[in-house]
Structures are given as C-alpha cells and as structure tokens.
Amino acid sequence: MIRWVLASPGLIALGLFIVGIIYTVALSLHYYKVAVGPPKFVGWDNYFQLFSDPTFSKALAVTVTFVATAALLETAIGVALAYGLMWTRRRGVYVGLLTIPYLVPSVTYVVFWRYMLDYRRGALAPVAEFFGFRIPDFLGNPDTALWAIVGLDVLQLTPFVTLVVFAGLLAVPPEVISAARIDGARGFSMALRVVLPLASSAILAALFLRLIDAFRIFVKVWLLTRGGPGDSTTTLELYLYTRGIYTLDLGLASAVSVVLLGISMAAIVPYVYLVAKTWRA
C-alpha cells in the first residue's frame, strides 16, 4: 500500500523514540561503564544506589520545586499581561517584541543575568554603591541561588505564556464581552468570570507547555551555578550530567533518566490527553 510507504518515515521515527525509552529502561537495570566493558545485569542496584544518595533526593526536590514555581509564576504573570494586552491597540508590534525573548539563545540570558547579579563587577554594583549599599550575592548563597535561576527563567519565558494566552483571548467573541459589559461586568469580574474562563484551554495549554519545558533547564543552571553552592541548585539534569554522563556510568545515567521520565509524565500525560480531546471533538 502506497499510503503506508508515504506514512512510514515519520511512523518509524516515532517508533524509534519508543525504542529509545525501552532501551533506557532496560539499561537502567544494568551495570554499564563504557570504559569497563559491556552491560551486566544487576537488577535494581542502580536505583538503590540513587535513592541512598542524599544528593539525588535533593536533586529530585530541587527539580520539582523549580518546575512548579517557574511554571506557575510564568503562567500567572503571563495571563495577567495577556489580559492587559487584549485592551490595547498596536498589538501586532507588541506580539513581535514579546517573541524576542523566545528567539534569543538562553546563553545570552545567562550572560545578562551574570552581569546583573555580579555584586562586585556587575551592572548594578556601581548603582548600589552610589546609594550606599551592596547588592547581595544571590548566586553564591545556597538559600537564594535557586530563586535567582527561577527569576531568570520567569524573565525569559513569561512572554511565551503571554503570547499563547493572548492568541486564546483573541478567539473570545467580542459580543460576549459587550453583553457582559451591559450586564455590569467590570474590572476583575470581567476578567475572572467572563473572559479568562473562555480562554481556559489556551491557559491550560500554556501551563502544561511551561511545566513540560521547565525540565529542560540545564544551560541556565550549569552556566550560572554549576549546581552549587553545595548541591542547592543541582537538578536531575545536572545530576545526570555530572554523575552519569561525565563519568560514563551509563547504567546509573539511565536510571536517573527513567526517574526524570517518570516525574515529567505527571505533566505530559494530562497534556497529551487534552490534545487528543481537542482533536476528537
């Protein structure tokens, strides 16, 4: 059948993703250091090793904290901004400008953030000095380093949420808004009871996309703190990199990957369900 031939490249590729996951799960049950020799089956050993390592438990907590706070903050602020954008003119220009942070490579944001937060030789240091105080060393303090990274992520990715939600708000029929206004809806009641509920699918989509994407934070953490100070900003990705990939302990790395997959499924499964529901309707 010719239609199967045409369909096959993409279907095979999707199949390879599944094979990759199965391979990772299988390898996680093996001891496999590339320098030592071929994989050797060891059952759950890698997982026992992981869960007896306090740094790993910390990495789990750091990852979940980061993903949840960053995604929720970005969604909340993004929705508010999108709602504000709805009532202004010249939206086309604004949409273009709000796209820029998504286009700029993350390393540029890292450079920007290092420059701003450097308390000795940063952009804000002379300003602070002028007013007679010193800016705190946010990245060097284990209590604030993670929040400094969350801040950078919010700065870069809130505009993305704004754009997605804004597209959803544009689909709200103007007649509904006029009718609500005649009925006396103003300010917050207009926003919370009329407009935003009608854009709920776009808001949910934005939230899930941010939750899913927030797991991919490697470059910001690695170039801002290397997971430190101590292990205060070590995410699962960093743990995977420093303990698994860098040392070529691929069995352990696979086990970390499986845990990472498992956690991210909490955001992925509902998202895929929503996608399927949208299309079947």
Partner: peptide
C-alpha cells in the same frame, strides 16, 4: 498526533544515553 505530542514533551536529557 497524540504520540507526537508525547515525544515532543519528553525531556531530551532523559534520552541522552540512548
């Protein structure tokens, strides 16, 4: 489409070893 959405969402670091 759902399978595509799933693969699009996987953390790329989780497929690093493969």
């Amino acid at each position: 489409l759902a399978l595509t959405a799933l693969t699009r969402s996987l953390p790329p670091s989780a497929l690093l070893v493969a």
